[in-house]
Design a protein around this nucleic acid. Sequence first.
DNA 1: TCATCAATTAGACGTTTGTCGAAATATCGA
DNA 2: TCGATATTTCGACAAACGTCTAATTGATGA
Lengths: 93, 93
Amino acid sequence: MAVKLNDDQFHRIARALADPRRYELLRRIGRSEKCVPCGDLLGCSEISAATLSHHMKELETAGLIESRREGKFVKYRLRRDVLDAYLAKLAQI
Amino acid sequence: MAVKLNDDQFHRIARALADPRRYELLRRIGRSEKCVPCGDLLGCSEISAATLSHHMKELETAGLIESRREGKFVKYRLRRDVLDAYLAKLAQI
DNA sequence: TCATCAATTAGACGTTTGTCGAAATATCGA
DNA sequence: TCGATATTTCGACAAACGTCTAATTGATGA
């Protein structure tokens, strides 16, 4: 069954996608089949760890990604079902 | 041939969609087969004319709508091809 | 237990954004 | 041309946002 987005989550997603850095992070995560370690994301962008953490939180509270801690590391994966739900709702315009 | 979005326009669209009021305005315009007069939009929301004008400009510079003046009135229509191009690009994540 | 590395949180700062009222511009009809 | 109506622009303001450094928390291995 497909994901259902309420107005609040829909709006959160729209805002999350409005920042180019977050969009790139999401692409980076989506491109990988495996979960992506936080450190990798920091490695391929110019932002500070604090800023990265902030952006990851935005993406996660939007529901676009999921995080999992593995020891010292945190890994992320794309919630493609949520992204698809967002696309479906936008397409209804 | 489908519309091609460069990074700047893509980002502009994402930002335009991040505001709930603009999203509603876009829906309102998209729902109508005919062009929608500016005054109608003002009629069914609580914002001032100045704020409405500001939002319409954002939507237009994003490429999501087109405007046409007819005498005293300005009318808008949805650029569905641009919206579709945005959806297609987002779907590539 | 401690030193170390990974990630988050707190606090601050400048920029962008949404909003409005007032003034300006555009168009029409009398 | 003048007055009325529709829309835009200007200038201001508060709130939200992206960013950073410094401090904190979490987890590992020596």
